[in-house]
Design a protein around this nucleic acid. Structure first.
Length: 259
DNA sequence: TAGAATGTTACAGG
DNA sequence: CCCTGTAACATTCT
């Protein structure tokens, strides 16, 4: 469920709760999408200390003592749930019990959320990484006829931006989400580039401030146009709705359509 | 109460 | 073969 800013906050909050704790027991409830056996996961991770939790694209990565990493992708409906007794979990995918702490689990009623042992590193730049340069954005936009929103959300091109923040970023940049990627003028691409970084970072700070130490939930308080309940943009223009790539998209006529 | 849900992927069609 | 758009996935919530 969460998008990049939420995941960033969850990563920080997982560290707050579990950093330096030893993983006592791991249980894989749904193994269909796991890239290794439950036994190998246990052999490699149980008894090890968690020393960092990072966000990479739309995944969380748990770094354990010994150099092994457990990646978690929440997909559309995945959630992190703390628990005292794992039998109480609804739709668990994988659960982790730590010494001298509660456990936490990845759950997903759709069974789509995926744990990955030692996820391979990616060449695709994360939206908040140094590799995400203006020249890179110019290059990929020039290459495609897809609507710009579709491109921003394409995880094979930029990692981390989802449906909600694609709308938010494009409204901030005053670019219509339906704009033909290659038709966007250079000056506008520059605006877009800077807004990706500043908007996401601002959102992380705001959500972080509002979340205390939560690991789940959605804070939509800071969204400006994405959401059925939002009728007007902050500048008082009517919010319009359409579907792009099968996903609801919110925009206003303040956003210029390039085609 | 039928439809929508912040994602990804396989597949169809051009 | 490359590019783009659509449907399916399984369940819950409104």
């Amino acid at each position: 469920m969460p998008e990049l800013p939420d995941l960033e906050v969850f990563a920080a909050n997982l560290e707050k709760r579990f950093k330096h704790k030893t993983l006592e027991r791991l249980k894989a409830w749904v193994i269909k999408k796991l890239n290794v056996s439950e036994k190998e996961l246990r052999d490699q991770l149980q008894g090890r200390k968690l020393f960092a939790v990072k966000r990479e694209g739309k995944t969380l990565q748990l770094h354990f003592e010994g150099g092994n990493v457990l990646g978690l992708h929440l997909m559309l409906h995945g959630e992190l749930k703390t628990f005292k007794h794992e039998e109480e979990l609804k739709h668990p995918i994988i659960s982790l019990c730590f010494k001298d702490a509660d456990g936490f689990a990845l759950t997903d009623f759709q069974k789509a959320a995926t744990p990955t042992f030692n996820p391979p590193s990616s060449d695709v730049p994360d939206a908040l990484s140094d590799e995400m340069s203006l020249s890179y954005l110019e290059r990929i936009l020039a290459k495609t006829k897809k609507p710009v929103k579709t491109l921003l959300m394409d995880q094979h091109v930029i990692r981390g931006i989802g449906n909600t923040y694609a709308d938010e970023i494009l409204w901030a940049a005053r670019i219509s989400p339906m704009s033909l990627s290659k038709a966007i003028p250079k000056a506008k691409v520059k605006d877009l580039y800077h807004l990706i970084g500043t908007l996401l970072r601002k959102e992380i700070a705001q959500i972080g401030g509002a979340m205390s130490d939560q690991l789940s939930g959605e804070i939509k308080d800071f969204l400006k146009i994405h959401g059925a309940h939002i009728k007007e943009s902050p500048t008082g223009k009517k919010v319009q709705v359409t579907k792009i790539g099968g996903r609801k998209s919110y925009f206003t006529d303040e956003q210029e359509l390039f085609q």
